[in-house]
Each structure stands twice: as structure tokens, then as C-alpha cells.
Amino acid sequence: MSDYETLLLETSDGVATLTLNRPDRYNAFDATMVAELPRAWAQLRDDADVRAVVLTGAGDAAFCTGIDRDAVPAGDGEYTFDPYTYTDPGEALGPKTHGMWKPVIAAVNGMACGGAFYLLGEVEFLIAAESATFFDPHVTYGMAAVLEPTLLAPRMPFGDLMRMMLLGAHERLSARRALEVGLVSEVTTADELPERARWAAEAIASQPVDAVIATVRNLWMAQELSRRQALDLGNFLLAAGNSSEALAEGQRFFASGQRVRPNIR
């Protein structure tokens, strides 16, 4: 199914697995990946057979380490910047930027740093291997950390986010600490990571799609708008999510006598 140079894309049973596939470069993004990710999100968004997505990185060393610095043209030491015309390459990476409201679960193994947060800042939740680490080296290399921490701000306490940004390459957040501060929802072994992420995606994909997508849109809206605005607009999402098809599918499941055996986290 995959016809990408820097990505792997596989779909089965309503779940797509999208893998950043540059393990020799720690899955850092170059110009090709920046061009391919928007196309992949649009493909997944428009594929009616896909109900949930697992986003991960190839290999054991890294989920993603941001921009591939070897792919950045060398300059002559002069630096000019026009904030009115500048387009950051990372802004095109995330699913929500491309109207992808189907749930995306990140399965993080190894390093996740810098520009990786363009992706992690726009997923529904993260599951991490015990080996995962999170850090942002921008300030260490003379760059302001601005857009990435803005995306992470709703996910982390202010002090922990500020510490991670200011310490740069000098400190890495462990998977366990990331769980404690709420950046990560679950920590597992590296061997079990694909299975745990797949389980969550399959459970989500088994439920009525309209209800799931409306719930996703509502929660993103709720964190970005005022409380009153979100509540006022919530009626429109109730109308969309409580579709006749979704309600009928849910009623059939209930009437069948089947009951979910829940995971206890």
C-alpha cells in the first residue's frame, strides 16, 4: 500500500500504521518527508476504511529527531529572517494541520526531540517504550524554542515544559517522567509497544466512526476555545456525532448482549 520514499503505510482491520522510515538518520525529516507527510495524512483522512492510525518510527534508536541538519543547505554565516514571509518546514507535518480528525496514536521508541513535537503535539495520545526519551536541543544550538513548546503546552505542566526547553541537550525526559507529567499515557516495554498501540487503535476503530471523530474534534476545540464557546459549539458536534448510523451501530452492539472486557490502566 505504501508508495512513499520516507514513510511506510500499512492498513488492516480499520487501523493504519504510518511509520517514519529513515532509521539511518534517526527518522529525521528531510524535504522529501516534509512533502510526503501531508499527502499521507490526506490519504488516511479520505480513506473510509481507516478509522484509527498508529504513528511510529522505524528502528529502536528514535521516533524522530526533528529536521535532518545534513539536509539544510550550508550558509555563509549570514542570517536573515523575515517573520512575515517565513514558513517553517515543520508546520506541514502534523495530522490536525491537514484536517485529519481520525484518532492518531503515537508509539514512541527511543529519542523524540525537536521537530518531532510537530507530530506529537497533534496526536490524540502517546504510548512510549521504557527506552523513550524526550528533549528539545534548540537553545543548545543557538535557536529559540518557540513553535514546538507551543504545541506541547496543553500537554505538560508549565515548569516541566520550561525546564525541558531551557536545558536543551543537557537533559532528557525519561518515559517514566513523561508519564508522571502527562505527556505520555502509558509506558511499556519496547517489545510490547507495537502490540499496545495496536490494541488501543483497534479498540477505537471498533466503535461508531461518527461518534469517535466528533469526540476528537470536540476535545481539540475545547482546549483551544473558551469554555463558553466550546459549549455553544458542542451542539453542532453532538448533531454530527450522534448520527443515525452511529446510534444504530451502537444499539446493535448493545442488543447483541456482547460486553467489552476493559483494560485496567
Results as ranks from 00 to 15, higher is better:
A178F: 02
L183E: 10
A203S: 13
M221P: 02
W220Y: 11
R228D: 11
A169I: 12
L166F: 06
N242D: 12
A200T: 02
L167D: 12
L237A: 06
S206E: 09
A239E: 07
V187Y: 03
E192V: 07
V184A: 08
R217C: 03
S206Q: 15
P194V: 04
A201W: 10
G241L: 06
D232Q: 13
R196P: 01
A175V: 10
A178Q: 08
S206G: 06
T189S: 10
R227D: 10
L231K: 05
W199M: 11
Q223K: 00
L231D: 10
L173A: 11
A214E: 08
N235H: 14
V181P: 14
L225V: 03
R196T: 05
V181N: 13
A201C: 12
W199C: 06
R217D: 02
T188Y: 03
R217F: 09
T189G: 06
L166P: 06
D191P: 05
V216Y: 06
I204T: 09
R172C: 14
A201G: 15
V184M: 11
E195H: 11
L183R: 09
A214F: 04
W199P: 02
A222I: 04
E171D: 15
A222W: 03
S244R: 08
A246G: 12
M165C: 13
I204W: 03
T189D: 00
Q223G: 01
L237T: 10
P194M: 07
A230Q: 00
R228E: 14
L167T: 15
L183F: 02
T215H: 05
A205T: 04
N218G: 00
M221K: 01
Q229T: 07
H170Y: 15
Q207M: 13
L225M: 11
G241W: 11
A211D: 13
G182T: 02
E195P: 05
R196Q: 12
P208Y: 03
R198A: 00
R227G: 08
S185N: 00
